[in-house]
């Protein structure tokens, strides 16, 4: 049954790479700054999922902590960027 799981992991990795590429196209092209922030948000989620795929492929659970950290810091980054678009500064006095 191992070829099945192997193929599924390959397929999922391919999908996440493709999704990251779509987000990157939007990040470069995006007409407004808000499009870029949204594309960045999608990109970090996809990166986190690819990292989990790597963890499954190498049968280790060490990648989980990195995925958790990416989820945490990506969220903070998106919030800071959106706040900057809204007010022109991130931490207001």
């Amino acid at each position: 049954m191992m070829p099945l799981l192997d193929g599924a992991i390959w397929f999922a990795q391919f999908c996440f790479a493709l999704a990251t590429a779509f987000a990157a196209i939007r990040l470069i092209r995006g007409p407004g700054a808000q499009d870029r922030v949204l594309a960045f948000d999608t990109m970090y989620i996809n990166g986190m999922l690819s990292l989990l795929m790597l963890g499954m492929r190498s049968s280790s659970t060490a990648y989980f902590d990195m995925a958790l950290l990416i989820a945490l810091f990506g969220f903070v980054g998106t919030i800071a960027l959106a706040k900057f678009l809204l007010r022109g500064e991130v931490i207001e006095p």
Partner: peptide, 14 residues
């Protein structure tokens, strides 16, 4: 497979 398909369709929507 389902998760990969959903993610790629979602990013295609972008």
């Amino acid at each position: 497979v389902i998760g990969g398909l959903l993610t790629v369709i979602g990013s295609l929507g972008l």
